[in-house]
């Protein structure tokens, strides 16, 4: 009995496997993904790299910093490249430049150009100081951010920056950005279709169309 059933079972299995392969899917083995490759990332592993900070404040760590603390940290760790007041260089100018963007000599600084205050936290922690990126403590970053915002006339001198106050800071150039209107110079030749813009549809729509 069992001898006569075995070939059927084998064939059925082969057909199922074959169908799965044709469907460009490979049965899961060690992981639940279609190819069974990769391994689960633990929360701890993700946390070590998950350093981005979004405009809504997501990703900001606990801690706080004041303008006064920031002046000291900036002088010690930033001024050598960005100047004593954030305007002298030799590297990027950080302060000033308001009302210059529409002129012949625009000065793009944190105060005149950056649309989100949270980006300051993200970028300073991620990349600064240039010779020792990701070495600053949350308190140091918050305080440098507070000082830079104060220098740019965006927060008051007794401001305290933390995970709640920083996302609430409204940058002067917050509404200064527009989406990509290209092609904006040369239009289509006759007989050609219009150039599609970049769709803003989500992943769901893309998956449906596959």
């Amino acid at each position: 009995m069992s001898r006569s059933k075995a070939p059927w079972a084998f064939m059925a299995l082969a057909i199922v496997v074959g169908l799965v392969m044709v469907g460009n899917e490979v049965p899961a083995q060690d992981a639940p993904g279609p190819y069974g490759l990769g391994f689960p990332a633990t929360e701890e592993e993700i946390r070590a790299w998950d350093i981005d900070v979004s405009p809504n404040g997501e990703g900001l760590p606990p801690g706080r910093g004041t303008v006064k603390q920031g002046a000291a940290v900036y002088a010690a760790k930033c001024a050598a490249c960005h100047g004593a007041t954030g305007t002298e260089g030799p590297k990027d100018r950080l302060v000033g430049g308001q009302d210059t963007l529409a002129t012949d000599q625009p000065v793009k600084t944190i105060g005149s150009f950056w649309p989100y205050a949270t980006t300051l936290y993200d970028y300073i922690y991620r990349t600064m100081p240039y010779t020792a990126p990701q070495s600053l403590t949350p308190e140091e970053v918050y305080s440098i951010v507070a000082w830079l915002l104060f220098q740019n006339g965006i927060v008051v001198e007794d401001a305290v920056m933390d995970a709640t106050t920083l996302p609430a800071v409204r940058m002067p150039n917050r509404d200064g950005f527009v989406s990509d209107p290209r092609p904006d110079v040369e239009r289509r030749e006759r007989g050609h279709s219009l150039i599609p813009g970049i769709p803003s549809r989500g992943l769901a729509l893309w998956l449906e169309h596959r």
Binding site: A102, T119, D122, F177
Partner: peptide
Amino acid sequence: MTREETSRYTDLMPDGTARR
């Protein structure tokens, strides 16, 4: 909204707006 898509790699136009 990282620095590389706000402060950098955005295109300043004559009217002072920047394309992102």
